[in-house]
Every structure is written in C-alpha cells, then in structure tokens.
Amino acid sequence: MTTISSPKAGARRRPFNWRRTSAWVLLALAIAVSVLPFYWVLRTAFSTNGSLAANSASILPADFNLGAFKRVFGLQTASEAIAEGGSGASINFFQYLLNSLLFSSITTAGAVFFSSMAAYAFARLRWKGRDGVFTLFLGTMLVPPIFTALPNFLLVKNLGLLNSMLGLVLPYLFMTPFAIFFMRQFFLNMSREVEEAAMLDGAKHWRIFFQIVMPNAAAPIATLALLTFMGQWNEYFWPLLVGTSEESRVLTVGLGVFKSQSPQGAPDWSGLMAATLISALPVLILFSIFGKKIVNSIGFSGTK
C-alpha cells in the first residue's frame, strides 16, 4: 500500500467508491485462496491421523499431536507409527533434506557462476559468431525438459553416475539458458567506465571480470541465485529419473514416495502434511528474509 502511490491513482481516487471496496474484497479473496491452504497443512500436520476422518471439518487440529513430525523424522518406532495411521516405513527425511540442500546449492552456484562468465562474453566481449552462439543458447529455452531428459538419463547412466549426486547436478551445473540471458541483460546495461579505466591500466579480462564486474553485479547475482535456488528446490522430474537411491533422493521425490508408502497406498495425511511443511520450510525462510527482493525481481526477470 505504501510504495510511492503514483499520482494517477490519486487523480482517479474517489472516497467510498463501491468499486474500490469491491476491488479490495476481491483482492482479499485472492489472498485468502492463496494463503489459507497453508493453514490447512499446518492444522493437518498437527492432527492425529486416525482422528482426521471423524473431525474432517474441524478448524483446529483433530487431536493435537506431534506424532506426524516424529514420524517424518523417524523418531517413532514402526509400531507406534502404524498405531497412529502411518505406514511404519522408514523415510529418511533428514537425508532427503540434506540432498535437496546439496542439489540446490551446487547447481545454483555452478549455474550462476558459469552462466555469468558466459553472459559476460556475450555482453561485453567482441568476437565473431557471438550473436549466433547466443541465439543457439537461447534456443535451448524452447527445448522441453523431457525431450533432453531421456538422453540425459542415458548419458548419466553411461557415465555410471545414476543415483549419485554428481549425476543429479551435472545437467544444471554449467549453465541454464535463463541464467545466461538474465546476466547478459544486466551486463549490457552496466556502465563501462570502470572497466575502461581498468583496461587502460592494462588489466586483463579475467581480473576485470572477477574484481570489477562481478562485485558490481552482486545484486542481480543474488536475485538470480535466489530464483535459481528456489527453482531447483522445487525440481521434480529429473531427480525422479536419476535420484532413486537414498544418497541422491531429494525432498520432492521423497514426498511422492511418502504418499505411497503405506500398504495399498492409503496416504498418511497428517504425516504427509508434516512432510510437506518441512519441505516448504527452507523456501519459506528464504522468502521471509528476501521476500521484497524476490517480489520486486518478478517483472524484471519473469521466467516459466
């Protein structure tokens, strides 16, 4: 409500306008639809699984209980879990959490760094074929992931890297077309003066890139890293194909597995919602810290 209320809004503003009121009502509705489901996740996660059916409409947790979280973290014995409606199966959530963190951080670091380098070459260096190569890179944005996923799966398999963290991160490690595009856009707009000065001092491109360009690009790099990290955290298809072992399974895949763990596939709803909450937590934390940055970056950089 605060940010620089633009004059045009003021010009058209009339007090107690029913339109305005209904606009607010609609907006409130949209916010409710966006946010309330998260309350329901919370409420279910703190419920006892066996009591959910009997209290399916109660606003408060049905039979408040931390069992679901214990179950997710493997702190319950199998028989306790089964008694509370869990599967009694062991799901290694801590390991998945760690895997997700590794997968997202490594790919983010690699993709952002290498893409920035390439973007610099595309934006600031003059070389023959530059625009052609850039177009080619950009064209990969149109290639549907499943199309490359099948051969990439085979490649990772041939490299003997199936079910390993390395195999999981490789396709994202060197670049993402979006990251190159994003950084190139920034470099194109960056002032040249400092660079030129350094150039006159005889500095090499490497030094210029690492000592001048990159520090100057800290803000867009942070934004890009945030966006990339969140995207990777939510990635499902590739990890589903490549990471089936405990050492390489990430949270999103683990969640899908958790759902179908119990005999004959009845979901352990409270356990599932507790797991969902935990999986969403890192992104929620990032969002609460960098929320403004993320929100404002959209529009400048929307993807997907």
């Binding site: 398999k157 003997g160 199936l162 079910n163 089936t244 072992s245 597995v257 179908s260 596939g265």
Partner: peptide, 21 residues
C-alpha cells in the same frame, strides 16, 4: 535391509540395475 513401498520399489530396482546400485 531397506524397505521401500510397492509403488516405488520396482522403479528403484530397475533404475538400480541400470546404474549398478
């Protein structure tokens, strides 16, 4: 011993056979 739900079990085995795990 590793226990894995039925839905997930066979995919994991096949994948494991392909990957040597």
């Amino acid at each position: 011993i590793t226990q894995t739900g039925w839905d997930d079990y066979w995919g994991k085995i096949t994948n494991g056979m392909a990957s040597g795990t």
